[in-house]
Write a protein that binds this DNA or RNA. Structure first.
Length: 338
DNA sequence: AAAAACTGCAACCGCCAGATA
DNA sequence: CTATCTGGCGGTTGCAGTTTT
């Protein structure tokens, strides 16, 4: 009650730190280490409050800070972490070595937030911005900026004619995996679907053997009733931004209870009958969860009674893989014929 | 060239929880 | 048990540099 702010005392300096002040603080911390911040100003000869010293050290002087722009990988990670954690900047920063909560918060507010809004995504919920507030409405469509040539540089002559011709909607309650594009998604229409995933936000890094990853980390979920089938990651890109060149296949866990809304214009034959659904991708370019991929000739994706969805693809470009877990919500699903 | 608007970011503020007297 | 102190956190502000008018 009635507690004074730490900087209330008249003699304490405020505002930007001078190089001299930085030097004093750096010298002191280097020599004595981080301890009681309230005593630091006195011992270091600074006219600052302890809180200010702490902040200056954490956000600027700490030797392990990473400087410069955020990489694409960092940006992707922040987006995914924010989707799970919300504005818990300290927790997000803990996953990004060398970055501070303040830095990430600023980056979010000045850049990422605007980016998402430009894409028609609510930065708070990470869901498409809707015309109404009815949470029961599962299918939301967003029109994106017409920058098709950026995203599909090699197939401009066969661009989608309209969103109506492209979209295929269905609900999924157990997606099993989130695949997210590393570049911003700027064309076409998005549809949302529910997910509940067995893994919790683990990134694949280049130094992780994806096969070992599958076998080791998935085992703990196999008693939970989740179907833990995951893609063969050996041929997928790691998070370094390299591209997948080889033909590969993956199995996508699909809905436990699935329902679909078919669209006769779609290239997919997607039926609700008898619990068996099949999607055919015959050498087509399409997007899967924001990934720009091309299916192999004659490839058939099946969405069967067991709720499995298998698609063979090749020539995917620029994507990252995020297994997410213990998360119920909605995420974007995209199927585009190019 | 000058003023206004915009942007990025460092730093402050107030609140909270845990520790301590 | 209560009051106070301290560190940590997220929201916000204000400044300096840049871009636009």
């Amino acid at each position: 009650m009635g507690r004074h702010s730490c900087c209330v005392k008249q003699k304490l300096r405020k505002g930007l730190w001078s190089p001299e002040e930085d030097e004093k603080l750096l010298k002191y911390i280097t020599r004595f280490g981080v301890g009681c911040w309230s005593s630091v100003p006195k011992h270091a000869g600074l006219q600052r409050c302890g809180k200010s010293c702490r902040l200056r050290w954490i956000n600027y002087l700490r030797p392990d800070l990473k400087r410069g722009m955020f990489s694409q990988q960092e940006e992707d990670l922040i987006l995914n972490l924010h989707q799970v954690l919300g504005n818990r900047w300290a927790q997000i920063a803990a996953q990004l070595p060398g970055r501070t909560d303040n830095e990430i918060k600023n980056f979010w507010n000045s850049c990422l937030k605007k980016k998402l809004m430009k894409q028609g995504i609510d930065p708070n919920t990470h869901k498409p911005i809707t015309d109404n507030n009815n949470d029961d409405v599962k299918e939301k469509k967003i029109e994106f900026f017409d920058k098709k040539s950026e995203f599909f540089p090699s197939s401009s002559s066969s661009m989608p004619i309209s969103a109506a011709e492209l979209e295929q909607t269905f609900h999924v309650n157990n997606g099993g995996l989130i695949l997210s594009s590393s570049s911003s998604m700027e064309t076409g229409s998005f549809l949302t679907k529910s997910i509940c995933d067995p893994l919790f936000l683990v990134e694949f890094h280049s130094d992780i053997d994806p096969i070992a990853y599958n076998s080791n980390l998935l085992s703990q979920f196999q008693q939970t009733g989740y179907d833990t089938t995951l893609p063969n990651l050996a041929n997928f890109s790691d998070h370094s931004g390299s591209k997948m060149n080889t033909t590969t296949s993956f199995i996508m866990n699909e809905a436990r209870e699935s329902s679909s809304t078919t669209n006769s214009n779609s290239h997919m034959n997607n039926s609700l009958s008898a619990g068996f659904q099949q999607m055919t991708f015959e050498g087509e370019m399409f997007q899967f969860n924001g990934i720009n991929v091309k299916s192999e000739e004659g490839c058939i994706g099946q969405w069967e009674q067991q709720n499995m969805h298998e698609v063979q693809v090749n020539n995917a470009s620029d994507f990252n893989i995020y297994p997410m877990g213990s998360l119920s919500g909605e995420y974007t699903d995209v199927f585009h014929q190019i």
